[in-house]
Design a protein around this nucleic acid. Sequence first.
DNA 1: ATATGTGAATCAATTCACAGCT
DNA 2: AGCTGTGAATTGATTCACATAT
Lengths: 216, 216
Amino acid sequence: MARLPVYHRALLTLAQRGERTVSSAELSVVTGVTAPTVRRDLSHLGSFGTRGTGYAVSQLLARVDRALGIDREWPVVVVGIGSLGRALARSGNFSARGLKVVALLDIDPQVVGSAVGGVAVEHVDRLEAVVKREEAAIAVLATPPGAAQSLADRLAAAGVRAILNLAPVVLRPALGVRVGTVDLAAELQVLAFYGARTEGPARTVTGAGRRRRQSS
Amino acid sequence: MARLPVYHRALLTLAQRGERTVSSAELSVVTGVTAPTVRRDLSHLGSFGTRGTGYAVSQLLARVDRALGIDREWPVVVVGIGSLGRALARSGNFSARGLKVVALLDIDPQVVGSAVGGVAVEHVDRLEAVVKREEAAIAVLATPPGAAQSLADRLAAAGVRAILNLAPVVLRPALGVRVGTVDLAAELQVLAFYGARTEGPARTVTGAGRRRRQSS
DNA sequence: ATATGTGAATCAATTCACAGCT
DNA sequence: AGCTGTGAATTGATTCACATAT
């Protein structure tokens, strides 16, 4: 469920603010998800709220955490240490969310050997060894588009189960591997499309883009 | 239509390769969109292919370009020149797609005055003036989460019609402004969720995330 | 009173399947 | 023979509305 991270963030804030309970209506306001959908989502999560009162924040947070697998830390390998890769490697945002950047890979000898955000950049030749060493199930591809497909294949072969592709290409994923692509330029193009045409009130589109499915 | 940029990229490649025509089946392979959906999308675009042959690449590309508004260049303002903002400012990816980063804003006096990718960083105090000067309809928010909402409001008031929000917060958009949020950490969390659980074959999820709608 | 959980209704998107053009 | 364009069917997600619990 793509909205789990949004609930997670919202609940975290509510918990810090000391709130004991939330109603689906309140969650609706802070997440931008309609109240019926919030209830459906949470019920789907197997969670029990109390009628007349709402949900117990801490209990609900615990459930969302478990569903998201935040009980443990997921090691993430970043491939391609250009400016985008570097930005990700530095992002303090990750650790709070069950993700930890444990290895950085690049092909440029100028970059290999340096450290970004406290992690050393290794040569992409060592990809297989690094994935194995870190037992990484997740990788981020922030390379030029031309290199992405073959690296995705190598990552898959090395045992990675999910890849976040930031290169502007459609990847053909290996069997058993999940690929999610985020193309920021495409995102902007879509916004330009809508934003420029709409003269009247508009709607918000959040979460990070529509999705297309391919078989693998 | 969220898939237009994908078609755009594919057609560009095909055109460069010298292909005169494409069938929906061929487009399906390179875009990862099923053939019936390709046909539906393109017909929806008002485009006429020729039966028995396919679509004329150049003609189709022209239509997609026009639909995406790529006939002109959209000026983009980037707010928040941290490592992510810097990565965007440098991304050569944009110019090829009808987007041009024309102004950079930050609050840090250390950063203000420097130049990134050939564009000077100005102080965020000048936001309104800069938006007006550049006649920018599109902005990217790459600030810490706490600052995002008020900046989104100011951008809207200054005349921006669409905002790409890269901060991990749900923004309440001003009336008539379109907000798209891309939260890379959330994206990874979702991948971790799927990737870690799937033992068998998996599906690909491309395009940049599911979307939630809020009223504005 | 208030708010959950969920069947039933609605809405949007995708896919099927085929008639019709080249 | 091959491939588009599109009605009809299907699938999936969202919303409604209400019985049910506190």
